[in-house]
C-alpha cells in the first residue's frame, strides 16, 4: 500500500510540510517574546469567526482570518497598555474568543462543520484551501526573511531594538498580522486545538540543541516537519487521528530531549 497513491495524502503532506515551515517560524518569535499562549488565544478567536461565517452562510475561513486579526491587534493593544502584565492580554482575548465561539456555535446548525474546524480536516483539503495555504505561506516566509534582523532584535529586547533604530511598533504590527493569518489558516487544516502546540513545542525542542537564533529557527522547522510527517504516516497505517498523534509525538520527543540534556 503506497501512501502517495492517494491524492488526499499527497495534499495532506504538501500542506503539512508547508505549515511546518511557517508555524515554527512564527512560533520562535512568539516564544522569545514570552507570548506562548497567543496561538491558543488566536485559534479560539478564529473559531468564533468560523461560527459567524457558518451562521451567515459566508466563507468561514475569511471570517476566521478576520476574527483572528482583530484579536491579535487587540492583544497587541492591551500588551502596550499593560507592559508589565503582558500575559493578561492573552487571557482576556482568549476568554473573549472562547465565549464568543461558545455562544455563536449554538446558532450553527451543523455541528460537524464546526467540529471540522476544531479538529481540522487534513484528510479532505479542497483545492482552494491548498492554494490558500501555499499563498499565505509564501507571503509569511517572504515577510519573515525580509524582517529577519528586526524580528530577531524585537523578540529579545524591545528597548534595545528601539535603540538600534528599529521601528518596533511597525514590526510588532506586521508580526501580529502574520501570526493571526498563519494561525487561522493552519487551524482549518490541522485544527484549532493543535496549532498552538505546533507553534511552541518544536521551538522548545530546538532550544535544547541549537546554539543561536538561526540554528533554533532551522531546528524548529526540522522538528515540526518530523512531527508532522510522523503523525501523518502513523495515522495512515494505524487507526489514529492525525492531529492528536502529531502533538503526542512532539511532546514525547520534547520529554526525551529533556532527559538526554539532563544526563549530559
Amino acid at each position: 500500500m503506497n501512501i502517495f497513491q492517494y491524492e488526499f495524502m499527497q495534499k495532506a503532506f504538501l500542506v503539512g510540510m508547508t505549515l511546518s515551515v511557517i508555524i515554527p517560524m512564527i512560533g520562535l518569535v512568539v516564544v522569545l517574546k514570552r507570548l506562548s499562549m497567543i496561538g491558543d488565544a488566536l485559534s479560539h478567536s478564529s473559531l468564533s469567526g468560523v461560527a459567524m461565517g457558518l451562521i451567515f452562510g459566508a466563507n468561514p475561513i475569511f471570517f476566521a482570518i478576520l476574527a483572528s486579526v482583530i484579536s491579535a491587534l487587540l492583544i497587541e493593544a492591551i500588551r502596550r497598555k499593560l507592559p508589565k502584565y503582558q500575559e493578561v492580554s492573552i487571557a482576556v482575548v482568549m476568554s473573549l474568543g472562547v465565549g464568543l465561539a461558545g455562544v455563536l456555535s449554538g446558532f450553527v446548525k451543523s455541528t460537524t462543520d464546526f467540529n471540522s474546524f476544531l479538529f481540522g480536516s487534513i484528510v479532505s483539503i479542497p483545492d482552494f484551501e491548498v492554494k490558500l495555504v501555499l499563498g499565505v505561506s509564501f507571503f509569511v516566509i517572504l515577510a519573515f526573511l525580509f524582517l529577519y534582523r528586526e524580528l530577531f532584535l524585537v523578540s529579545f529586547d524591545e528597548q534595545q531594538a528601539k535603540m538600534a533604530g528599529v521601528n518596533v511598533y511597525l514590526v510588532n504590527f506586521i508580526f501580529t498580522i502574520l501570526t493571526a493569518v498563519t494561525v487561522s489558516v493552519a487551524s482549518r487544516t490541522v485544527g484549532a486545538l493543535i496549532v498552538s502546540s505546533l507553534m511552541v513545542i518544536p521551538v522548545i525542542c530546538a532550544m535544547q540543541v541549537a546554539k543561536s537564533f538561526r540554528q533554533t529557527l532551522l531546528f524548529s522547522i526540522f522538528f515540526a516537519a518530523i512531527f508532522m510527517s510522523a503523525g501523518l504516516l502513523m495515522s495512515f497505517y494505524l487507526p489514529l487521528k492525525p492531529g492528536g498523534t502529531i502533538v503526542l509525538i512532539a511532546v514525547l520527543v520534547l520529554v526525551m530531549l529533556f532527559f538526554i540534556k539532563r544526563k549530559s
Binding site: 492517494y6 467540529n115 484528510v123
Partner: peptide
C-alpha cells in the same frame, strides 16, 4: 464513513480503506 452519531471525521487509514 462516520460512526452512528455522525461526529468524528475519518482518519487517513479509514479513508484509504474506503477508497
Amino acid at each position: 464513513i462516520r460512526g452512528i452519531n455522525a461526529d468524528d471525521e475519518p482518519n487517513p487509514l479509514k479513508m484509504s480503506q474506503i477508497v
